[in-house]
C-alpha cells in the first residue's frame, strides 16, 4: 500500500455522490417528506373552503379559484417543510460522527456543501411538480402553463436551495438537531407575515407594513402575477431574483459555518 495514492478525485463525482445520498436519506425516512407534501395540501384545502368568499372583496386579485391564489403559498410551504430536512440530516451526521468521516475524505468543501444543496433542490422540484399536478386537478389554473411551470420550478428549486443552505448553516454552527428544528417556526412565521395567504392591502395596518418589507411577499407577488397574468417578464424576474439573492446569502452563511466547524 505504499503505492501512489489514487488520482485526484473529481469534485463533480463527489458532489453527485453526496447529493444522491441526501436524496436517498430523505426518501428512506418518510417522516421527512410525507408531511411536506400532505400538510400544505391539507392546510390549503381548509383555507380554500374557509376563505373562498373573500375573493369577492374589492381589491382581491381576479382568480378563478382560491386554490390558484394559494398556489405560491402551497409551494413555499412545501419547500420550507421539505428543505429543512437538509439541515436536519447535516445535524444528525454531526451527532453520529459521520460528518467526521466525510471531512476525513479528500473531498472538496464545495462538494460537501453543494452536494447536499443539489439534493435539496432536486426534492424541491419534485414538490413543485407534485403540487401543480394535484392543485390543477382541483381547479387551480395557470394562465400560461409553460411560463408558469418554468418560473415555479426555478423559484421552487432556488428556494429549496436557500432554505436548505440556511438550515445546514444552523446545523454546522450548533451540531444539534433540536436547534435546526427550533428555527423552523421562524421560517413559517415569515411565510404568514407575507402576502402568501391573504392580500396585505385588504388588511392594512401593521400587517401590510411588515408584509411589504418581507422578501417572501416579493416572491409570492411575482409568482402570482405569472400564474394569473401569464408571461410577465418583470414579475418572473422579481420572483427569481429575490429567491436567488436569498440563496446566495444562505450559501454564504453556510460556507462560513462550514469553515468554522472544520477549523476547530
Amino acid at each position: 500500500m505504499t503505492a501512489a495514492a489514487h488520482p485526484r478525485p473529481s469534485a463533480v463525482a463527489q458532489a453527485v455522490a453526496i447529493a444522491g445520498r441526501s436524496v436517498k436519506g430523505v426518501l428512506r425516512q418518510p417522516p421527512q417528506w410525507v408531511p411536506s407534501l400532505v400538510f400544505p395540501l391539507f392546510f390549503n384545502a381548509v383555507s380554500a373552503a374557509a376563505f373562498d368568499r373573500t375573493r369577492a372583496l374589492p381589491g382581491f386579485p381576479e382568480v378563478n379559484s382560491f386554490l390558484t391564489f394559494l398556489l405560491p403559498a402551497t409551494i413555499l410551504q412545501g419547500v420550507l417543510l421539505g428543505a429543512t430536512a437538509a439541515g436536519n440530516d447535516a445535524a444528525v451526521d454531526i451527532e453520529n460522527g459521520f460528518f467526521d468521516r466525510l471531512v476525513l475524505s479528500p473531498m472538496s468543501r464545495v462538494s460537501l456543501l453543494g452536494g447536499r444543496l443539489v439534493g435539496s433542490m432536486a426534492l424541491g422540484v419534485v414538490q413543485v411538480v407534485f403540487f401543480l399536478a394535484v392543485l390543477s386537478v382541483f381547479g387551480a389554473r395557470l394562465e400560461n402553463p409553460v411560463a408558469g411551470i418554468l418560473v415555479l420550478v426555478v423559484v421552487g428549486a432556488l428556494l429549496a436551495g436557500a432554505v436548505g443552505a440556511f438550515s445546514v448553516s444552523i446545523a454546522l454552527r450548533t451540531g444539534s438537531v433540536e436547534a435546526v428544528n427550533g428555527f423552523f417556526p421562524i421560517f413559517f412565521a415569515a411565510l404568514f407575515m407575507s402576502s402568501a395567504f391573504f392580500p396585505p392591502s385588504l388588511s392594512g395596518g401593521w400587517f401590510e407594513t411588515v408584509a411589504s418589507v418581507n422578501p417572501i411577499t416579493w416572491i409570492v407577488d411575482g409568482l402570482r402575477e405569472v400564474i394569473i397574468e401569464g408571461w410577465v417578464p418583470g414579475a418572473a424576474a422579481k420572483a427569481v431574483a429575490v429567491s436567488l439573492a436569498l440563496g446566495i446569502l444562505a450559501i454564504f452563511m453556510a460556507t462560513r459555518s462550514l469553515a468554522a466547524r472544520i477549523r476547530t
Binding site: 489514487h6 478525485p9 463525482a13 463527489q14
Partner: peptide, 20 residues
Amino acid sequence: AIDPIMTGRELLKLQAVLHG
C-alpha cells in the same frame, strides 16, 4: 462514524467515490 440510513455496501461505495 457511520450513517445508519445507508447499507454497508452503499457506504463503502460512497467512500470509494469520495476517494476517487
